[in-house]
């Protein structure tokens, strides 16, 4: 029981401090701008491009797709930097020398980014309502909130995996950017999945966000939670698989670093 309490405390303390450590260099105004202006730019760019190509009536397709896809900003960039930061700070030997539960230490890093990502998605949807006439009147707020939570959870799972890769690669931003921009296409945020080649569709269903975006579109069109439940459960499973893959990669990295003496080199 005591160890459970200690691990829960480690989870939340690590979650809060790693989040604070990552964003403290930003002034509140800079942080706010990153939360407000960057989503605005993405939504305007893809929505107007999409409307130009397919017509005004499809605005909501692009607004919803990009708003949910923006969960990846916190889920991928935030979480990856939170884990990769230990490499730059030189704290890895000190972390690996502690008796701390690795799962609590590792997964805790993603917690506040899930919440942060949800705020980002809500702000993006607000831009859609204010500037592009997105109609949320048919949406079940609870179902939509749950969908946003599941989307940020699954992208944070992918962020944890990429964070571990950042421990062993030299240029994590290259990987992050590649994955982020791939999600713009593969997740169905900007292109209907049915128009993609078969192999791309197969990849799309193995990625986070694909099901969340599909679920969000159904909910905003008036669908019920029960109708999208299978999509959301699968999205949770996808997120959990990425978390587990990241965790095992994290343990593998720890073992390899001790075997090869590369804890300070990577």
């Amino acid at each position: 029981m005591r160890s459970v309490t200690l691990n829960i405390r480690l989870f939340f303390q690590g979650a809060l401090l790693s989040y604070v450590a990552l964003f403290r260099w930003l002034s509140p105004m800079t942080y706010l701008a990153s939360k407000v202006l960057m989503p605005l730019a993405q939504i305007l760019f893809f929505s107007f491009l999409g409307m130009y190509a397919t017509g005004q009536a499809n605005a909501s397709f692009y607004v919803i797709g990009n708003a949910i896809q923006l969960a990846a900003v916190s889920g991928i960039f935030g979480v990856t930097m939170s884990i990769g930061g230990d490499r730059w700070e030189g704290t890895l030997p000190y972390l690996f020398g502690t008796p701390a539960n690795r799962m609590a230490m590792f997964v805790g890093r993603a917690f506040f980014h899930v919440l942060d990502g949800m705020v980002g998605v809500v702000l993006a949807l607000m831009w859609g309502v204010l500037l592009l006439g997105l109609d949320l009147s048919h949406a079940n707020p609870l179902a939509l909130g749950l969908t946003i939570l599941v989307a940020t959870f699954s992208t944070s799972g992918m962020g944890l995996l990429l964070g571990c890769i950042s421990l062993i690669t030299l240029n994590v931003m290259f990987i992050n950017n590649t994955v982020y921009f791939s999600l713009l296409v593969f997740s169905g945020a900007n292109v209907p999945l049915s128009t993609l080649p078969a192999w791309m569709q197969s990849v799309a269903w193995a990625l986070p966000l694909t099901r969340s975006i599909a679920a969000a579109r159904q909910i905003i069109a008036g669908g019920s939670l029960a109708e999208v439940a299978p999509l959301l459960w699968m999205e949770v499973l996808i997120g959990a698989i990425y978390i587990l893959a990241g965790y095992f990669l994290f343990r593998w990295f720890e073992r390899q670093a001790k075997l090869r003496g590369t804890l300070d080199i990577f």
């Binding site: 303390q13 972390l95 502690t98 701390a100 230490m105």
Partner: peptide
């Protein structure tokens, strides 16, 4: 905050 975090890592 550094010390708090390491205190939790060391239980």
């Amino acid at each position: 905050d550094n010390l708090r975090y390491f205190a939790s890592l060391y239980h």
